[in-house]
């Protein structure tokens, strides 16, 4: 999903910025955020389907934006204290090094190079980015293997091109790739019937499907081409800040697991069903202090954005236009890969 060209440029400037990244930080980012009373979070230079979009009033919305709001609420008590800074894919890493942004929440895959060489630190994955294949219903395919010999359309120069090649080579499926530079071209070609299938990031495929004249003509196949675990990124050495982020993600998942929702959070707080919910919602005194936050930080977050499931549903899931299935982003007890940590 990242263009190679812009990555090249980023790599060039990063070689430079990596060298000076060691620039002394007098105080941690967390203190800076509290002092500034606002959190600088990533937007996009345009709209990125489902994750960071701009509505007709120029306001940001989407899955990643909700996490920005949740983080601002956890630290500063209000979702209005987040400032969304538009950055391009290539710009995000230099921008965090230079302090233009405090945190990257921008479908950013956790890779070894980024984690080690770029001087960054990742939170636990908050989203498992799946690459799928969508094909025409009339072909009656139930898996990718059924599309042997077909024309597969992809976005040129993005991760997906490599992912598809790897998958098909490993499984020994012959196919004919057809690459398009822009997403719009790709869609138009698919609607016009030039491709038997298109491969891509889940939300993009969902949007392509719902925008078709007849969405039922197309079907996203269950086979997952590859996964990209997406993490929240901070500068190396911001341990306190990373703790807050990890526990915020965990709190959202824990709330879903325990059935705490935006609607019933007050009731739950007044009448906690278990000791862990007591700790989650700050009924037990002193739980927020350990993170340097107020005791009711998680309560505020849930009250503002809801639990993980609610965020997902509203922005990319069934409650949105994209209707992206929860799939691997479900909780462990619903067949997914996500789980809360233990809050003791």
């Amino acid at each position: 999903m990242k263009r190679q060209i812009t990555n090249l440029i980023a790599a060039g400037t990063l070689a430079l910025s990596g060298a000076v990244a060691a620039q002394a930080q007098d105080q941690g980012v967390l203190d800076t955020i509290i002092e500034r009373d606002s959190l600088l979070c990533t937007g996009h230079n345009g709209s990125y389907l489902g994750f960071a979009e701009v509505d007709a009033q120029g306001a940001w919305q989407g899955f990643d934006i909700e996490f920005c709001k949740a983080l601002a609420t956890a630290i500063l008590g209000s979702p209005d204290k987040v400032q969304i800074i538009p950055v391009s894919w290539a710009q995000r890493f230099p921008a965090i090094q230079s302090g233009d942004i405090d945190v990257i929440i921008k479908v950013t895959g956790w890779t070894m190079t980024r984690d080690t060489e770029l001087g960054l630190q990742y939170s636990r994955p908050y989203f498992i980015g799946p690459f799928y294949v969508m094909s025409k219903t009339e072909l009656g395919a139930t898996g990718i293997a059924d599309l042997e010999g077909g024309v597969f359309c992809v976005n040129a120069g993005t991760t997906i091109e490599r992912v598809l090649t790897d998958y098909m080579e490993t499984k020994g499926i012959a196919y004919e790739p057809l690459a398009f530079e822009k997403g719009e071209e790709l869609r138009a070609a698919f609607y016009a019937g030039r491709c038997d299938a298109i491969a891509g990031f889940g939300p993009f495929l969902s949007a392509t499907r719902i925008n078709a004249e007849n969405p039922d003509d197309y079907e996203i196949l269950g086979d997952v081409l590859a996964l990209e675990p997406e993490g929240i990124v901070v500068r190396q050495g911001e341990d306190d800040f990373l703790d807050v982020i990890n526990w915020m993600v965990s709190a959202l998942l824990m709330a879903e697991e325990a059935g705490v929702t935006q609607a019933n959070v007050d009731e739950m707080k007044a009448n906690p069903p278990s000791a862990s919910v007591e700790r989650l919602l700050g009924v037990t005194p002193g739980v927020g202090e350990r993170l340097g936050l107020s005791d009711d930080w998680a309560y505020n977050v849930i009250k503002t954005v809801g639990n993980y499931g609610e965020i997902y549903d509203r922005t990319v899931g069934d409650g949105s236009r994209y209707k992206l299935p929860r799939g691997l982003n479900n909780l462990w007890n619903n067949g997914g890969l996500l789980y809360p940590l233990v809050m003791d």
């Binding site: 345009g46 538009p86 869609r187």
Partner: peptide
């Protein structure tokens, strides 16, 4: 300048079509 995160008219145009609702009206 859109590559460094400025929302000039071209980037705003891309933002306008970058949602599920208007994605086909590019």
């Amino acid at each position: 300048v859109t590559i460094i995160g400025f929302f000039e008219v071209m980037a705003s145009g891309n933002a306008a079509i970058g949602n599920g609702e208007w994605g086909n009206q590019y």
